[in-house]
Amino acid sequence: MLRYIFQRLMGMIVVMAIVVTIVFVIVRVTPGDPAAVMLGPEATQEDITALRSRLGLDQSLGLQYVYYIGQLLQGDLGQSIFLNQPVTSALAERAEPTFFLTLFSIVIACAIALPIGIYAAYRRGSFVDQAATTLAMLAASIPSFWLGLILIQVFAVRFGWFPVSGYGGPGSSFTERMYHLTLPAIALGVVSSALILRFTRASMLDVLGDDFIRTARAKGLGERKVVMKHALKNALIPILTIIGLTAAVLISGAVVTETVFGLPGVGNLVVSAVLRRDYPVIQGALLVIAALYVLINFVIDMLYLLVDPRVRY
């Protein structure tokens, strides 16, 4: 087991090294002078030269890379040009809405997808199974921002049950902030549940047809115990995989939804940084999102050890 964990950690380091190199190269090979692009057409040559010196762009590419790696090892993602603050601080200030939105959305997606997917597999070919498959295809084809706009129109504007946008005031309680996240979490959760439902159904169908399930039934075990204890436990690995990938996608893909609902999250920050050509923020956000992808995959791999003892061998 320790060897398996060590291999996964080494893989994480290699992946992050590749991502860091790609992010570094992309900014440097962008057409035009990055400093001139960030400052805009009205910047003077003196301003451009000063920014190039501040960002280290006047040095050789090799020295820039070494300096960039040294900054990252110290936890320094650079300085935002327009926010005039460290990128790390800017991302940390916007992390809370994105984190809770992702967590809330995953909970909603799993609450919808897992029971329906399990029951649809158990009642394969029935009306429930066909209806679940149809609804999953429908949910997968709906853009989350469009569903968000519909939810705003119905539940916020017409009925007034939820706020239209925002994340509450500076002194808002945790409950009030979660209340503001309800509609965007539902929008993301419903769309994300489609893929989890399909994988849950497919994985359960594979397991329910195995010999050990027939043996368990032949021994007289109840259907609930056969499905929930024997079948579900053996079908969990692909289900955990798709849940982890969905969480990673939500972290990086909630940009439009955060913009629609006016949430001050990381996605909104990235959109603003792209529009203002704030390359340090874009670089930092890409690295953080990539690190979260790798970390989530590592956590899922560790969960494999608990679900399936064969993995550790």
Rank of each mutant, 00 (worst) to 15 (best):
A235I: 11
S144P: 09
Y279N: 09
A111K: 04
D206F: 05
G262N: 03
A285D: 11
A17E: 05
V66R: 10
P163D: 13
Q64G: 06
S173K: 03
L149G: 06
L83W: 08
L250E: 05
A131I: 15
R310F: 04
G265Q: 10
T88G: 13
L181F: 11
I26T: 13
V29N: 09
V107A: 11
L295G: 00
I289Y: 14
F155H: 08
I22Y: 07
R52H: 14
A254G: 10
I26L: 15
I13T: 07
G70C: 01
L205G: 02
R224H: 13
S272I: 13
M178H: 06
M228A: 08
S80G: 14
Q7A: 12
I118C: 09
R310G: 03
G222Q: 10
I237P: 13
T182H: 01
G166K: 08
E93G: 00
P115G: 11
L61K: 00
N234V: 02
Y68F: 08
L205Y: 05
A187Y: 08
K233C: 09
G75C: 10
S105E: 01
T200S: 01
S60R: 04
L73R: 00
L269E: 03
F174C: 03
V87K: 06
V255R: 06
T241F: 11
R214F: 15
E46M: 06
L83A: 14
V154T: 14
L195A: 08
L83D: 14
G171D: 14
T175F: 15
I296F: 14
Y65N: 07
E223V: 04
M302Q: 10
L135N: 02
A187Q: 07
L269N: 05
R198M: 06
Q64R: 14
R28N: 11
P264A: 12
L205S: 05
I251D: 03
Y293A: 07
I296V: 14
V14M: 14
S141E: 02
L101H: 04
L295F: 15
F162Q: 12
L2T: 13
L269C: 07
T102L: 02
H230E: 09
S193M: 02
A231Q: 02
V15S: 12
A231V: 02
I242W: 05
I289C: 07
V25I: 15
L263T: 08
L72T: 01
L250R: 01
R3N: 11
L305S: 13
G220E: 12
A113K: 06
Q74S: 05
F6D: 00
A90I: 07
L138Y: 10
A285Y: 08
G56S: 07
S172C: 12
A235Y: 13
F99W: 06
F127M: 10
A156M: 11
T134Q: 06
T215I: 11
T21R: 00
P143Q: 02
L63R: 14
V299L: 15
T98F: 13
G78R: 06
A50W: 10
I150M: 15
L287S: 03
E46A: 14
G32T: 07
R94A: 15
A113I: 09
A131T: 13
S144K: 01
M12R: 02
G56I: 03
T200Y: 09
V271K: 10
E223R: 00
S60K: 02
L208P: 04
F24Q: 04
E258W: 11
Q71T: 02
T257G: 08
F155W: 11
S165C: 02
C110P: 03
G11E: 05
G125Y: 07
L73C: 06
A248S: 15
F127S: 07
I22F: 12
